[in-house]
Design a protein around this nucleic acid. Sequence first.
DNA 1: ACCAGCTTTGACCAAAAGGTCAAAGATTTT
DNA 2: AAAATCTTTGACCTTTTGGTCAAAGCTGGT
Lengths: 201, 201
Amino acid sequence: MKPQTRIQSEKTEAILEAALDVFSTHGFRGATLDQIAEASGLSKPNILYYFEGKAAIHRALLNRLLDNWLAPLRELSADGDPLEEITAYVKRKLEMARDYPRESRLFANEIVQGAPRMRDQIEGPLKALVDEKAEVIRGWTKAGKIAPLDPHHLIFSIWATTQHYADFDVQVRAILGAQKDGHFHDAARYLATFFTKALRP
Amino acid sequence: MKPQTRIQSEKTEAILEAALDVFSTHGFRGATLDQIAEASGLSKPNILYYFEGKAAIHRALLNRLLDNWLAPLRELSADGDPLEEITAYVKRKLEMARDYPRESRLFANEIVQGAPRMRDQIEGPLKALVDEKAEVIRGWTKAGKIAPLDPHHLIFSIWATTQHYADFDVQVRAILGAQKDGHFHDAARYLATFFTKALRP
DNA sequence: ACCAGCTTTGACCAAAAGGTCAAAGATTTT
DNA sequence: AAAATCTTTGACCTTTTGGTCAAAGCTGGT
């Protein structure tokens, strides 16, 4: 099932890499096979030799990404210090936004438009993980280790504030006048203070 | 310049209303004139009688929306009680997300994709307003009225956490199992507590 | 060196999509 | 009620786009 020869894995990799660029900046519908062909240096028929079609490429990207995307949350451990666990999660999430903005925007595009190609993943594995970790957080609040805040909404806040720096990148840069990624450092300090203050019991 | 006869304003209104639906759920590129025609009950050529083209409709929507979108921030007054002013802003912004989710998603689509049709508005009036209000907030922190947090990043947090409920609506509903808009009430309470705790000096 | 199987592509195709236009149908003005 | 103006639309055009295909070009194993 999976690519086997060297040439196959190289080409599918090149296609996915190019497709991530194109899909994340134009959305599924806005992306064209010609753009992906151009960006990957392959011809359009050649791309269709490796993937069944435009939708298959998009699907492959989403499948591969969900795991990586949820990894930071998965690391949230019930055993650690509550405040530290959460601020560490915020930090990891912000680093993801800085280092993988295309992935973030790929998801953002998909969700904003109603997740027509991701419904199952969201209602299945994503919800399951969130519910599990929400329970962990609820345990902390019940034990008085952190301020009593709804765990689900807390997770939403973390997602929203961190992903904002990837998804709304142009806006952030326009307002801050940021040239490079320097503002991520400020954002990290800001979010650390912010969540620490909000969560301290 | 503006529509004048009754029939003109009715039809342009119907087109913009339909276009808001279509553009906000499919993005600019994903929306088609046929969909807008279908949704508005007009024929495609009839739509093109009122607007120069697809891009003109989109432009009209964005222009009309920016003002309303920034209204809640504009109301932030330097004279009021700092904490109350900010939490009231958060509340207004969340109400916007609840009552005008399509508008929020229209913007989200545009910004996520690099704001190709909105750059000027963001770098111009939007940045100007944000800078102005950031200065107000900076005054409050310097006076020790609220905790010392970077004003720009604070504004980003408010945008991110509130708009999240509109832009990522499907995800929020999938996770909360929300049927109607009941979760907005919880979100309002959550955000009020959250920002109050974070901002108290 | 040869060949079986894998890879690549130029030329096409059909459907979708933005847009045009002349003529027919309403409305308003005089 | 006729003229003038504004609205509406069926038919049509062009470009874009996802996708196909047969033939040509490569590659790796023997």
